[in-house]
Structures are given as structure tokens and as C-alpha cells.
Design a protein around this nucleic acid. Structure first.
Lengths: 338, 338
DNA sequence: CCCTGGCACTCTCGACAGGCGAGTGCCAGC
DNA sequence: GCTGGCACTCGCCTGTCGAGAGTGCCAGGG
């Protein structure tokens, strides 16, 4: 186990390195933090920390920088979550309250998060699986073609065009619409398949094929989660780290374009509490020099989706975590109101 | 007026520079293109081209590179549009046909365009103003709160929550829904205000306020074009130009995050034909070292939106224009079918 | 009149060497 | 167990130099 002071030294190293982006030496440490010991002592501590793998030197005789393991310890034991200031919280609330629809909420959230953390922000759209049905609409486009519109309690809208095997009359359609809605409105998506299972049987023989087709499309939309969508923003912030540049930024931008990768990233943390994945803890190899801070958000107690930021491992963890948590909280509120 | 051969020299310079990304000298030119004259002659031509402002040298005694003016001449007079190969066209069609809804069409188009051109792709969602109404749906969420859903002929869906001044019954709502749809379905957005103007008068006194509120929201959605949305992709391609790097990429990423800027960018070209804006021709200062190739696309003869790519001024114009044109054409087809 | 080969000049780029300074590890003393 | 001192290492910066590429100009030839 590391002594109290050595932990203190590690904390100082992380803080200084995050601030200056440069390897930090023993002398600078004693000057900037009042550790009440001499540089020589700190050097001994640093040697110990290096043996344990918490810090490393880029080259012999340069200062030390934290390793992934060092950041991990810092986040777990040494850092709190820095709460936002009153004005910041007011600003968040004001900014989010102006949103007119779900797309707008998400896009505002992304911009806000990117601006607050000065990093790349990722916001997942409220997930379908945990949502409930608000309404299902069916529109006849042509005798054998109709459009299915699904509206969820989170305000999300999905639509599909369905080609029917046989023509359908307006009356049959109205009938189907009414019965369908009376069964599924207010229900969770996972319940829907069970609830509509026997619906075709209550229609005339000739229409059953069509009804089944429509229902199949509906279930597809619900179950397959055809696109767990998300929005990202603040990619320009990547350019703030000009040092190790093109090498780092390229794979990150590529990873960010792969929605699948990002969804997996957000999905990896099982529960909805705040999660920090540092450097190589991220499975995707384009992101091994970045850290991901994510948290669930939702309209009620339960999280319906996640949001977070991606930044260099050398990020201001307390500040970032504070911003992410605060934004998630307010977005939850906004969703609950609408 | 420039002689035939000098134009040929300019073309050669542009082609070589686009290929190699390096200033091109007189000797290399005569070797790679059979100009049938000596390097010395080419040097004289180059001096003339430089006097006219079509090319420039980064430093004394380096090769020449084209200026914005040079690219402009190249695009206008010297370059054709390079048609895509059969397999490429097949691939486009196959890829786009798999789309399930409008979002999917747009997202596939973006990815496709980014991949084909190896540049940043921008696709605007089909615009509301030129669209027609397919259906308007009204749902009662609470006695004084309803949701308005607008579906356009391009498959786009907009929804708004409306707070009513007075409670509304299901029957009145059904009545409104029916009358509203019978008037506006199939009509252009610009016609709608006129068509619904006298609608409140046909309802009972007590409901008129509510009806007016609903209609006002509808008109707002139609007219204000509250969000001309678009999607971008392929930003990782920006990192292919590692040379002048952080300086260039930063403002570009920032500009790309500003949807307003991009919409203006696409909107600037008045008609829907292929437009190329080179370097400083772009109003936004973050984009002065990039070129934008854009074209309108639509389901019928008329364009409903635009798409294009953003890349460095030193891009392969014929190839890029070919890809952009082809993609626009196929997207139009897909939209027309659905 | 235009093209051509030759020549001197300019300028960038990479390699190399030397000096500087930051930072370290170790040791003896308190 | 902490501290000051000291020798050492090594990366970075600077200046110098030579090579190479490209140019502009000029005189000669078709």
C-alpha cells in the first residue's frame, strides 16, 4: 500500500500534468504544491510510484507523466466530482429549456456538453426498448402500401413504409388502428409482441396476411432497435492537443464515425451510474489514448439512454465528471416535463 | 487570352499537384506529360501563368502550385466530369436500396459519398418548403395538450406538442383532423396558410381559440423551417492532409459543427445544378482553404435539397464532381420510389 | 518570332555537432 | 526517514554546411 504522501504526490503529478500537458519534475512539484518535503524526498516517492506502475517517464531524465493505471487510481481514490457553479447550472437549464422537440433536446445537449467540457460530446437518443408506446398511426398511401408511424413516450418518432400482399380498405385500416392502439398504448415495447399476437385472428380471412405484415413491421421496429441513434459534437476540440497530433486524432475521428463502436462504448458500462474508462480500458483500439466519461440519464428514476464525453486520458476528470453528471440530470428533467 | 499550350501546362500542373501534393517543377512536367516542348519553354509559360495569377510558388525556387484562380479556370474550362465506372454505379444503387426510412437514406448517402470521394460529405434533409403534405395527425395527450405530427411526401416527419387554451373533445379533434387533412393533403407548404385560413370559423365559438393555436403551430412548423437539418460524415478524411495540418483542420471542423454555416453554404448556389466553390470564394473564413462541390437532388424534376462534399482546394475535381452527381441522381431515384 | 540548352543563382531541407538545461539517482550526513 | 549535494544522462535547440531542386536569364538556332 502506498503511503499517504505518495498518493498526494500522485495527485499533484496528475493535476500538474493535466494543467500544463508537460512532464512534471520533482522540483516543480514541491514549488507548486506545498508538500512540505524537499525535491529529493519527492524523487524517492516518484521512484516508488514508477516501480508500482502509476507513473512513467517518456525519456530518461524527463519529468514523469501518469500512466493509465495512475489515472485509474486518481479517479477512484483521489478525485472527487467537482460540482458546477451556480451560474453554470443556470446556464445549462436555460439553454436546455428552449428546445422544441426531441431532436432539439439532443442537439442542444451535445453542444452544451462539448462546450462545458471542451471535449467531444456523445448523446444517445432515448432508447426504444425501455420506452412505452404513445401512439401508433397507420396511413394509406396506396391500396397496397401504407405508412406506419410509431410515437414513443420520449417523443421519438419512427416511421416505416409497408407493402401489403393484398389491398386494404380505409374501414379495415381504421379498425386495425383502433384495436392496435387500444392494446399497446402506454405499454412497454417488450410487452407489445405478446399483446398483438392474436390480433390477425379477429379479422377476416382475406385481410389476415396484410395485418400480419403490418404487425411484423411494427415488431421489427420495436425489437430490432433498427438504429440506436446518437449524436456527437465538439470534434473541433480534438485539435486542442496539437502535440501528438495526426497520429492520435485520425483513429479517434474514425471511431467516432462508427456509430456501432460508440454505442458499444456507452453500452459497456452495465448500470447507469457514472463510468470512467481510461486509455487501454477501452476495447476499441482507436480509443486507447482517450478516456470516456459516461452516465445514464432518463425521465424517471430509470435511465433510458446514456451520454458522455471522449477526451484525452490527460483530462480534467473532476471537472468533466461534474459537467457530465449535471447535464445528464437536467436533460432528465427536461424529458420528464415534455 | 492564354495560348492553347499554356492552358495545357496549367492542366498538367493541377493534375500533378493534386496527385502528388507537392509543388511541381518544369522538368517533372515535361517528363510526366508529353508536352513536346523543353523544360525551358515550360518555364516561360509558367512565368506567364504566374503573372496572370493562375499559379504561384510557395517560396522562391520551389515548384508552382495552382492558385484559387487557377483551379477556377481548370474547373470551368479544362476539366470534365468524370463518370463513374459501372461497378461503382452498381455499388451505389445496391447500398442505397437497403435503406429503411428517410434517416437511413440520408445516413447511407453520407457514408457513401464520404467513401467515394474520400472527403467530408454533407447531405441536407429534403427541405420542407418545396415539399407537399402527405398527412397531418393530431393526438390527444391530455385534455388541453395534443401532439401534432406532420408527414411530408419525402417521408420526413415533424412533431410538435401544443398546449391548448381550452379543453378539446375527441370528437372535435376528429372533426378537425378530417377537415384539415381534406384541405391540405397533397398541397405544397406554401399553399397551406391560404387553405386553412378560414378553418376556425366553421367550428363552435368555444373551440376557435384552440383551433387557432393548433393551426398556428402547424404554420410555424411549415413556414419557419424550424430546422433545416443535415448530416455530415467522413471527417476522418480531413486527416489525410497531414502537411499544413492543425492550422487548417481546426477551423474546418468548427465550421462543420455550425449547421447554419453549412446550410448557407449549400444554399448559396441558387439553382440546383452542380456548383463548385473554390477557396476564398467561400464566404466563411474557416473554409477559405477548402472547396465545396454541391448539387441539388430531388424525387422529381425539382430539387428538394442539396448534397455535396467539402475538401481541400487541391482535390480531384473531375472525380469528385462525378461522384457527387451520381450519388445525387440515385438518391433522387430512391426518394421517388418510396 | 518562338523554342532550346546552358549556366549561375537562390532557397529549402536534412544531417551533424556542440552547448545548455532539466531532471534524475545515489550517497553521506543529520 | 528526510535532506542537500553532486555527478551523470539525455533531449532539445542552435548554427553550420552540403546536396538537390528549381528558377530566371541569355545567347543561339530553326
Amino acid at each position: 500500500m502506498l503511503s499517504e504522501r505518495r498518493l498526494e504526490v500522485l495527485r499533484a503529478i496528475v493535476q500538474d500534468y493535466v494543467g500544463t500537458q508537460e512532464p512534471v519534475g520533482s522540483k516543480a512539484l514541491t514549488e507548486r504544491h506545498n508538500l512540505k518535503v524537499s525535491p529529493a524526498t519527492v524523487r524517492n516517492d516518484m521512484a516508488a510510484l514508477e516501480d508500482e506502475g502509476y507513473i512513467a517517464q517518456p525519456h530518461t531524465s524527463a519529468g514523469r507523466i501518469p500512466t493509465d493505471k495512475g489515472y485509474r487510481l486518481f479517479v477512484d481514490k483521489l478525485a472527487g466530482v467537482k460540482p458546477l457553479s451556480k451560474p453554470e447550472r443556470r446556464a445549462i437549464q436555460n439553454f436546455l429549456e428552449g428546445a422544441v422537440d426531441l431532436d432539439d433536446v439532443v442537439s442542444r445537449t451535445v453542444r452544451l456538453l462539448a462546450q462545458l467540457t471542451r471535449q467531444v460530446a456523445i448523446v444517445q437518443y432515448p432508447s426504444l426498448t425501455r420506452s412505452t408506446v404513445r401512439h401508433v398511426e397507420l396511413l394509406l398511401l396506396a391500396p397496397t402500401r401504407l405508412m406506419l408511424v410509431l410515437i414513443t413516450d420520449t417523443g421519438r418518432v419512427e416511421q416505416r413504409v409497408v407493402d401489403c400482399p393484398a389491398p386494404l380498405t380505409e374501414t379495415t385500416l381504421a379498425d386495425l388502428r383502433a384495436r392496435l392502439n387500444s392494446r399497446v398504448v402506454g405499454e412497454r415495447f417488450s410487452e407489445v409482441p405478446r399483446l398483438v399476437q392474436d390480433l390477425p385472428e379477429s379479422f377476416e380471412q382475406g385481410d389476415r396476411g396484410t395485418i400480419s405484415t403490418v404487425l411484423a413491421t411494427l415488431l421489427e421496429t420495436l425489437v430490432e432497435e433498427p438504429e440506436e441513434r446518437l449524436m456527437i459534437g465538439g470534434t473541433a476540440n480534438l485539435t486542442r492537443f496539437v502535440h501528438d497530433f495526426p497520429l492520435t486524432i485520425r483513429p479517434v475521428l474514425e471511431a467516432l464515425e462508427e456509430q456501432v463502436v460508440l454505442l458499444k462504448l456507452l453500452g459497456e458500462a452495465k448500470d447507469s451510474s457514472m463510468t470512467v474508462r481510461i486509455g487501454h480500458e477501452n476495447a476499441h483500439e482507436g480509443l486507447t489514448s482517450t478516456s470516456v466519461v459516461s452516465v445514464g440519464y432518463g425521465s424517471g428514476n430509470e435511465a433510458v439512454a446514456k451520454l458522455g464525453v471522449v477526451g484525452p486520458t490527460r483530462m480534467d476528470y473532476p471537472g468533466t465528471m461534474g459537467a457530465v453528471r449535471a447535464v445528464a440530470r437536467y436533460v432528465g428533467q427536461i424529458l420528464a416535463e415534455s
